[in-house]
């Protein structure tokens, strides 16, 4: 190949080496935030030159649950809510592996909520990337554990009356050693946080507030995906290391973004290994 012809060739998308090309096109709606999250994740892998032989990408059920299937990596699509329990088994069985769980708010915090808080409590090394679009998208837009009060969904047609979870506060209170929130607008900051989280050993959590223009944002008259992104720009404020309990998430007023927790704590598989070594020596 001559120098000229190389230049004239259209270059591949820079993250394509991390993607299962034979699975494209993907199933996600246009303007959905999942695309941004996957792109940021792949960009982080590329900038870290991550050894993909040591990573397992795991997801649960839902729109985001399909994420694991698009990466050219060891990957597993569990049943609804069980990605973190599966990831715990992976990490404990083979500590050289880094599990990455990519899933939605309903999967991780309703049906899978118990697994989330206990993996965080144990500090099992994994990155949990949660795409929070405030509803169950794949099943048609039902209310879930993050749906704001008074929001309209197909199962809260007259307005949601339940109090939602504040995910970063749940993660911090459960013991996660890295906790961040961004919106789908903050692609570069999100990428940086993913890079940081991947280099930490322990339970790390990143929430990404994401448009669902097909369902949630349409039911609630938020306009097109582009309009939702504009709104994110308008109402987002960055407050790194502010108290995650106070990290407001309100579409009418403001969304507090940033890295709230970045701490150190002994990691579970390391503790298990140390414990085993002591016992094997007969201590």
């Amino acid at each position: 190949m001559t120098e000229t012809s190389r230049i004239s060739t259209i270059e591949e998308h820079p993250i394509l080496e991390y993607i299962r090309r034979d699975r494209l096109p993907h199933i996600f709606c246009s303007a959905c935030g999942i695309g941004t999250v996957l792109q940021s994740f792949a960009t982080a892998l590329r900038s870290l030159n991550y050894d993909m032989d040591n990573m397992v990408i795991i997801s649960g059920i839902g729109c985001t649950g399909r994420a694991s299937g698009y990466f050219a990596a060891d990957s597993y699509h569990t049943t609804h809510g069980r990605a973190i329990a599966f990831a715990t088994g992976v990490k404990v069985a083979n500590p050289k592996l880094k599990p990455v769980v990519i899933s939605g708010d309903g999967d991780l915090f309703a049906i899978g909520g118990n697994h989330f808080i206990h993996a965080a409590r144990r500090n099992v090394d994994m990155l949990v990337l949660c795409v929070n679009n405030f509803n169950y998208g794949m099943t048609g837009g039902q209310m879930g554990p993050t749906t704001p009060v008074s929001a309209i969904t197909v199962t809260s047609p007259d307005g949601n009356i339940e109090h939602p979870f504040n995910l970063v506060s749940v993660a911090a209170a459960s013991g996660a050693v890295f906790v961040a929130r961004w919106t789908a607008l903050h692609a570069r900051r999100l990428t940086k946080s993913i890079e940081k989280a991947l280099q930490k050993k322990g339970f790390t959590f990143i929430e990404v507030v994401s448009p669902c223009p097909t369902l949630y944002d349409r039911y609630n008259r938020h306009g097109t995906g582009l309009e939702v992104m504009k709104k994110y720009r308008e109402i987002s404020v960055i407050r790194n290391f502010s108290d995650p309990m106070q990290a407001e998430i309100d579409y009418r007023t403001r969304i507090v973004c940033g890295e709230f927790v970045d701490s150190e704590k002994p990691e579970f598989s390391d503790l298990l290994e140390e414990h085993g070594k002591k016992l094997q020596k007969g201590d």
Binding site: I58, Y76, T78, A85, F86, A87, T88, G89, V92, A93
Partner: peptide
């Protein structure tokens, strides 16, 4: 579920 993860 952890058992399945460990098996894999």
């Amino acid at each position: 579920t952890a058992v399945v993860g460990a098996s894999y």
